[in-house]
Computed example of a mutant assay.
Amino acid sequence: MLPVTLVAVPAIAAGTAILALGPSDDVHGTTIEVAAGSCAAGWDAPQPGRQTFTVRNTGGQSAEVRLIDPASGAIHAEIELLAPGTSRDLSATVGGGTYAWQCLPDSDPPIVSASRQVAGSSAGGQAIIPVTEEIISAPVDAYRAFVTAGLVTLQRNTDTVRADVEAGDLDAARRDWLTAHLDYERLGAAYGTFGDSDAAINGRPDGLPGGVADEDFTGFHRIEYGLWHGESADSLKPLAARLATDVAELGKAFPTQEFDPNDLALRTHEILENTLQFQLTGSADQGSGSVLATASANTDGTRELLEIISPLLTTRAPDALAAAERRLDAFATLLRQIGNPAGTWIAPDRLPLADRQRLNGSLGGLLETLAPIPDVLEIRSTG
């Protein structure tokens, strides 16, 4: 878990700040002025402890404003957007060390203020070393390679499902359907990149006018519905053929699809947030009773993401990484113990209430631990 000295707040609204938290009593410091061609001109070194600065933009354009370690560029606190003619409070826990202000106007080069030395041996709030597109390029390449290999496996196993249905062997199709579906679910962060392909391959009937009978309900979950609701092999053949074709088209398209590098960290939280909403409630189930197997595959996808971004977290938030890995392992183990005790996955509605509550509590704690990671690894402008 991140130390209590740092709360990373998602960038939902303009002016969102990372607040380095310390003692509860704030000391209101000086006003920091952002002006045309200058940044915090004449600012004085603050006293150690919890500080609240008033940051005022008197220039003509919006700017990001950061309190930084001038040697490393690590960010102690920031305002992501400060509009012209506005002021905002920015809080930080100041310890002994050297500080400066960095202003990044929309259209001009960054400006760094004079540095100020703060005397004292007390530790300040944890500072975040900025992540740039160059720094994150290697993890993005590694994830693309992982997904590319995963799509090959997915294609092979989806073709097997198609062959099972073509042969009229629906028992084999049910077995092989689960294997292929879990292949897809392990791809994790890429689902945001897949666009319309995701809806075609893994969409649910929720919100479709015709429900499970809607012609736009296709892919794994449509085949699942048919396999576990007594539909004939002949009725499933076109659906299995379309799924295999859609997977093949995705495999061709993926190398040229755009991938937002911020998604690597964002999906560590979002994958399992969806798991809590759709798998642990059982709402994604279309008859197979395998949603907890899907939840397990989702943990595999999240673990892959954490492994890929771990070099970045090790130098920025090692405690957060260690806590996330520990809680992910604990949830995965509990999920297998409760959901698959005898080698067959159990549907959530067949579990005792106490077991469902244990799963929800474990996953909720994991999500709380994962939540700050996207902010720590958010790609930040260097001007």
Rank of each mutant, 00 (worst) to 15 (best):
E258H: 06
V147A: 03
L266W: 01
G188E: 08
D234N: 12
G85N: 07
G210F: 05
V34H: 00
A20Q: 13
L292C: 04
L104M: 14
R50W: 02
F254K: 00
L363E: 00
Q61G: 13
T333N: 15
T299P: 04
G364D: 09
R327C: 02
G22W: 00
A371N: 07
Y99W: 12
G188K: 01
L328F: 10
L370A: 02
I68R: 01
V4C: 07
S232H: 09
I338R: 11
R186I: 08
I135Q: 15
A293T: 06
P139Y: 08
G211K: 02
S197L: 06
W228P: 07
N360G: 14
S197N: 07
A142N: 13
A145F: 04
L151Q: 05
G95S: 11
E78V: 12
S113R: 03
G195R: 01
E64Y: 03
L334I: 04
L104A: 05
Q117D: 15
T132N: 08
L208R: 02
A265C: 12
N262S: 12
P205Y: 04
S310I: 09
A45P: 04
A41R: 14
V131D: 04
L187Y: 00
S235N: 05
P70F: 09
V147H: 01
P105Q: 06
F259H: 01
G339P: 06
L227G: 00
N340R: 09
A244G: 05
D169H: 07
F220N: 02
Y191L: 03
T153Q: 14
L170V: 13
T281G: 04
